[in-house]
Measured scan of single mutants.
Amino acid sequence: MFKRLMMVALLVIAPLSAATAADQTNPYKLMDEAAQKTFDRLKNEQPQIRANPDYLRTIVDQELLPYVQVKYAGALVLGQYYKSATPAQREAYFAAFREYLKQAYGQALAMYHGQTYQIAPEQPLGDKTIVPIRVTIIDPNGRPPVRLDFQWRKNSQTGNWQAYDMIAEGVSMITTKQNEWGTLLRTKGIDGLTAQLKSISQQKITLEEKK
């Protein structure tokens, strides 16, 4: 169930391209415009997507990853294993993690069937560096609404905000991946996880038929 919630949630996290980005210092504006741009692209490019579902990787690479804190999220997933990894191991892992996100997020976007969304009203940021933004996803086919909290983090150097995690039903996506990959990290280390991520990233994206 959580895996499905995570995939549905990713439908609204794909941010804007650099040329049309919203105010990078306001995570609420980023979330709002990102959702609108993403849904528009999914709707307008269905012919290309249906002809070649792996085209979704391109959308992810162009529109999402430049505005997601990939390395920060990847380091959180590694936890204690990050500090013990060599620079070469980290570089290989982050490259594999990025390719994994292209496949995983692309597969999530393949679930698009006309969903709509509501974003919580903007709250004062103050001096906060981590801000959760509640998004409610509404399914046109009558499924119950899904309420999610996207975690946005302020870059201490640039002042810009980027998304790095999502919490559904009190469970963090980062925590879920830590639990899912924990045994592999304990037995085969970061190299074993890197190899698995490379394998997963090679899987073809498949479209979910409308139910």
Rank of each mutant, 00 (worst) to 15 (best):
G159C: 11
Q89P: 05
M6G: 01
E209W: 14
L64F: 15
I13V: 08
T194F: 07
L11P: 02
W152H: 05
D40P: 14
L10Y: 08
I49S: 11
A34S: 09
I190E: 04
S17M: 14
P132R: 09
S156R: 04
D23G: 11
R90W: 03
Y81V: 08
P140R: 15
F94T: 06
W161D: 00
G142P: 09
R186H: 02
S172C: 00
I190V: 03
E91W: 05
K211N: 04
A120I: 14
L197T: 12
I205C: 06
N160E: 09
Y81P: 03
L76H: 01
T129K: 10
R4K: 15
Y105F: 03
W181P: 15
V8D: 02
A110D: 07
Q48H: 14
I119P: 08
Y164P: 03
A168D: 02
R186W: 00
T183C: 04
P47W: 09
D23N: 09
I13A: 04
V12F: 14
I137P: 08
M1C: 02
Q115N: 00
Q196D: 03
L125Q: 06
N44G: 12
I190K: 06
Q162Y: 03
G192R: 15
T129V: 09
A35D: 05
I174P: 15
K128E: 09
L16S: 07
A108H: 05
A19H: 05
T194W: 11
A75T: 01
A120H: 15
G79A: 06
F97M: 10
K154V: 02
T206N: 14
P144M: 06
R147P: 01
Q62F: 09
I119D: 04
G182D: 00
K198L: 08
T175S: 05
I167F: 02
Q123H: 07
N155T: 04
L125R: 11
I49E: 05
I119F: 08
I174V: 03
R57V: 15
Y28F: 08
E169H: 02
Q80A: 09
K204G: 12
A88K: 10
V171F: 00
A92S: 14
A22E: 10
A85D: 03
D54S: 13
E45P: 04
L78A: 02
L197F: 03
F2A: 01
P121S: 14
F39I: 03
N179S: 04
T206V: 13
A95F: 08
A85F: 05
N26I: 09
I190C: 06
M173T: 00
K177D: 04
G142C: 03
K43P: 05
N52T: 13
A35T: 12
K154R: 14
A73E: 01
A92W: 09
V146P: 02
K211L: 08
I190A: 00
L207K: 13
D191R: 10
D165F: 00
Y100H: 13
I200P: 06
L197S: 04
Y55A: 11
Q36D: 14
L101F: 12
A34Q: 01
Q157I: 08
L10N: 00
R90F: 03
K188D: 14
G74W: 00
Y72E: 00
Y55F: 14
G192D: 14
G182L: 09
Q48P: 14
A18Q: 12
G79Q: 04
V12C: 14
A22F: 08
T116S: 15
D32R: 09
L185Q: 08
N26H: 07
R153A: 00
V8T: 07
M166G: 01
L64Y: 09
P132K: 10
D165E: 00
Y81R: 09
R50H: 08
G142D: 06
T176M: 03
Y28C: 06
L65A: 06
K43D: 13
A18L: 15
P144N: 05
F2R: 01
D149F: 00
T25M: 10
P47N: 07
D165Q: 05
Q151A: 04
P124A: 00
L109M: 07
N44P: 06
Y112M: 04
W152T: 03
N160K: 10
D61I: 04
K128L: 07
Q24L: 08
L56D: 04
N155C: 01
A120E: 13
T20A: 14
L64Q: 03
P27G: 05
P87W: 05
E209S: 09
L10Q: 00
R4I: 15
G126Q: 11
K102R: 13
G114F: 04
R153T: 01
R186C: 00
W161S: 03
L56V: 10
V171R: 03
Y82I: 02
Q80C: 03
T116Q: 15
D149C: 04
W181S: 05
L78W: 03
K128H: 08
T183R: 09
K154G: 07
A18T: 14
E63T: 10
A108Y: 06
T116R: 15
L56Y: 08
K29Y: 12
A168Y: 13
G192A: 00
P53N: 15
D149V: 06
M111I: 03
R147L: 03
L109Y: 15
D191K: 10
L64I: 02
I59A: 11
A34L: 13
I190D: 03
L5F: 12
G126S: 13
P121E: 13
Q36M: 15
G142H: 08
L11E: 00
A51Q: 14
L184R: 08
Y112D: 03
P66Q: 09
T136N: 12
Q36C: 15
Y105Q: 02
Q162A: 04
S84I: 10
V171D: 01
A95C: 09
T176A: 00
P15D: 10
Q107Y: 07
V135W: 09
L185P: 13
R153K: 00
V8H: 01
Y117K: 04
P140S: 14
E33I: 15
K29Q: 13
R147G: 06
Q203P: 11
A51I: 09
Q151M: 06
A73C: 03
E91C: 06
Q151R: 05
R4F: 15
A14F: 14
L11A: 03
G106S: 15
I13F: 15
Y81D: 11
K128I: 11
R98C: 11
V171I: 00
Q89S: 11
L76V: 13
A73L: 02
S17E: 12
L56S: 11
R50W: 09
N26Y: 07
W152V: 11
F150G: 08
F39M: 01
L197Y: 15
I133V: 01
R90P: 02
S201F: 13
W161C: 00
D127G: 14
T129A: 00
E99W: 11
T206H: 13
E209I: 10
A120G: 15
Y100P: 00
M7Q: 03
L148F: 03
E45T: 11
M173R: 01
M7D: 01
R186V: 01
Q36F: 14
S156K: 03
L64C: 02
Q46P: 05
Q123G: 10
L148R: 04
Q24M: 10
N52M: 08
A195F: 14
I49Y: 04
